[in-house]
């Protein structure tokens, strides 16, 4: 029962991805078809356009993933698919395809929470040791998640306004940086200094929650004020100052959560886990504190079906099964996502 071969599908945003995952440990294939080039002209992901691309690509990607893995549908034990959160139209393409495969070959269907997927990407780096704390940072999420065991998620802190990734995108737009904004700011920040000393928003003592909208406004104001005075901002320093504020708060709260919860590991998950500034700061802080840090390699930080397949393996061995009536749930709760 601990062995499995799972075909996983991820289509929650702008990547169409299919993976074949063995025993929740080995990626036999992890094909990602990115739409980023198409969405660049709009300066962000357009849901209707994303959904259309998913339909255009879905069976190509399934076919590539199967042939790259060298397996057939007969070898597969279960079909996993991202059920939410995400763009509903985009999710529905993956779900429709997953149901068709499950029905055609009489295989179990398993809906997976997108963020559970991001967290489980870490299993491909190092086996999880419980209890653990995971810092989730992506375009739509900034959360601290406590896991006492496999499949059990307790959100101990979350953003009260913008997600960290959202703040990155907005600041990038203010600086007229190309889409996607996050990596662009990260690159600029590497050449700048924290000269602006933007506020660090820590909220009330003891809270693990985050808030980035104030910081975002401070950055936008700094740019506007400079413009009004006829001065030019130094984009490198502005990016570095913004990033320093975000990273400092993320790292500080993550470390405190690990200590308070007696966690054996600190995991990092989500698209912003690819941010070099964050990776460096986390590495330094965890080294200093003697905490075991696990971060997925860059290619597993973004959306991919491999991570969905790993999470699905643990749902599969726990006996989670969904029916052919499964729906997309754009606001799916992480805490209940792996409950059988």
């Amino acid at each position: 029962m601990d062995t499995s071969l799972i075909l996983a599908i991820e289509s929650s945003c702008d990547e169409t991805s299919v993976a074949l995952v063995r025993d929740g440990k080995t990626l036999l294939s992890n094909v990602v078809s990115s739409q980023i080039e198409s969405h660049k002209r709009f300066g962000g992901v357009v849901p209707e356009v994303a959904s259309r691309h998913h339909v255009e690509r879905i069976t190509y990607v399934i076919d590539d993933a199967l042939s790259e893995a060298g397996v057939t549908m007969q070898d597969v034990d279960a079909i996993a698919v991202t059920q939410g959160p995400g763009l509903v139209g985009a999710l529905l393409v993956g779900i429709s395809a997953a149901k068709a495969l499950a029905f055609a070959h009489n295989k179990p269907l398993i809906g997976v929470h997108h963020i559970a997927g991001h967290i489980y990407a870490n299993e491909l780096v190092e086996e999880m040791e419980f209890p653990l704390v995971c810092l989730v940072v992506s375009g739509g999420h900034t959360e601290l998640v406590y896991m006492p065991e496999h499949g059990v998620f307790e959100v101990i802190g979350e953003t009260r306004d913008d997600a960290a990734g959202e703040a990155y995108d907005k600041v990038a737009r203010t600086l007229s940086l190309p889409y996607p904004g996050g990596p662009a700011i990260d690159r600029l920040a590497a050449d700048g200094k924290d000269t602006y000393k933007f506020p660090r928003v820590r909220l009330e003592a003891g809270s693990f929650d985050f808030s980035f909208s104030g910081l975002k406004s401070s950055v936008i104001n700094a740019v506007h004020n400079a413009e009004q005075r006829g001065e030019t901002v130094i984009p490198e320093n502005l990016a570095a100052s913004f990033q320093a504020s975000v990273v400092e708060v993320l790292v500080e709260k993550a470390i405190r959560a690990v200590k308070e919860k007696g966690a054996k590991q600190l995991l990092v998950a989500g698209g912003v886990a690819a941010n070099r500034g964050l990776r460096t700061a986390l590495k330094e802080a965890t080294d200093r504190e003697g905490i075991c840090l696990v971060i997925p390699p860059l290619d597993l930080c973004g959306d991919n079906a491999g991570m969905i397949g790993v999470a699905a393996h643990h749902a599969y061995v726990r006996g989670k099964r969904d029916t052919l009536a499964m729906n997309a749930v754009p606001g799916l709760s992480l805490e209940e996502s792996m409950t059988v």
């Binding site: 959904s51 399934i62 529905l92 393409v93 429709s96 068709a100 070959h105």
Partner: peptide
């Protein structure tokens, strides 16, 4: 309906492909 057609077309093409 955009969403409606996508559900039908994705289901049909995936079934036809896999079968």
């Amino acid at each position: 309906s955009y969403t409606g057609i996508r559900i039908g077309v994705t289901t049909a093409k995936t079934l036809a492909y896999t079968l």
